[in-house]
């Protein structure tokens, strides 16, 4: 099973961004998706760093793809997509708008924010040129198994959200701006203060969600630590690790150890909790009654 580092969902300074991808070049992962997926206003701050990062990752033997935005509405964003399609790098489609710009037959991959729920959709995307699909995190194991089988029949690698805060929703409205009583057009980049997202708690102060500009994430960190064997059995080809602050290289190594069999699920979960500063883990979308549930032993404080 391969490891993919997904596109960073958060707004980091250009220097932090560059340092992160420099560390990923040395990390034991197979594939890296980079670029801006959440907010087009963030891109100018680090856009000029992208070519060098791609070059370094390729030199380190990684496969590299560049993501589309998740929600494309503005003229400037459509133009960005058109330019991306012409750049000659593999594109990970996270809004179907990107497909409108890709000539038929161009190979591309599909990210977790495109709704691939069934065989018919997978088949249509495969015919169109999809070679890899990271499934929406919401899918239960039975759907993952059916889609992995369909993917195998059509030569499409199936990837599953393996680690990281879950992308639960995307909006036209910026919640960080709203929190600071600003409009989106005058957001003053409030999301930059929360490089892992801002925790959103219930009225009983129970951690629940996290806001990240126009995106809403889970408070919990999804983790397939206990699901590796089940996913392997279905034929899933890769796990996606979503960037977060902290020692991400060590996190990648822990996952590699888990896939190699030198670390078991419980040991990995304990390690991830440590590396994530005590974040709660979840894997309920795959096997639980609901997304927030966790199949492991200790972190289930909120069932």
């Amino acid at each position: 099973m391969e490891l993919t580092v997904g596109a960073n969902q958060f707004f980091w300074t250009a220097d932090d961004w560059s340092a992160f991808y420099a560390s990923i070049a040395a990390a034991p992962v197979d594939r890296v998706v980079l670029g801006e997926v959440i907010c087009s206003k963030r891109l100018p701050f680090y856009q000029d760093r992208i070519p060098a990062a791609i070059e370094a990752l390729l030199a380190a033997g990684k496969e590299v793809a560049v993501t589309s935005l998740a929600l494309i509405t503005l003229k400037r964003e459509r133009k960005q997509m058109a330019e991306l399609a012409e750049a000659g790098v593999e594109i990970e489609v996270n809004d179907l708008t990107a497909l409108a710009f890709l000539p038929k037959g161009t190979a591309f991959s599909v990210g977790p924010l495109v709704n691939v729920y069934n065989e018919g959709t997978l088949a249509w995307l495969a015919d169109r040129g999809a070679t890899r699909i990271c499934l929406p995190p919401e899918l239960p194991l039975a759907s993952v198994a059916a889609l992995a089988a369909e993917g195998a029949a059509r030569g499409v690698v199936i990837e599953v959200w393996g680690h990281g805060r879950l992308p639960l929703a995307i909006s036209g409205r910026c919640y960080h701006a709203r929190l600071h009583k600003r409009t989106k057009d005058n957001c003053q980049f409030a999301c930059e203060d929360d490089p892992d997202g801002l925790s959103v708690r219930t009225l009983e102060d129970q951690p629940f969600l996290a806001m990240n500009g126009v995106q809403t994430l889970s408070d919990s960190c999804a983790s397939m630590a206990h699901q590796v064997e089940a996913l392997r059995t279905t034929g899933v080809g890769a796990l996606r690790l979503s960037p977060q602050i902290g020692d991400f290289g060590a996190l990648c190594q822990a996952w590699r150890d888990r896939l190699n069999g030198t670390l078991d699920g419980a040991a990995l979960a304990a390690k991830l909790t440590d590396l994530s500063g005590g974040m709660r883990l979840s894997d309920g979308f795959l096997t639980g009654a609901r997304g927030a549930d966790w199949s492991g032993e200790d972190t289930r404080k909120f069932a």
């Binding site: 709704n115 879950l166 995307i170």
Partner: peptide
């Protein structure tokens, strides 16, 4: 809907 429709799994995260 405050979120882009068809692109929201808040409900299944909390309720399944």
């Amino acid at each position: 809907c405050v979120m882009a429709e068809g692109r929201c799994s808040l409900s299944s995260y909390a309720t399944g």
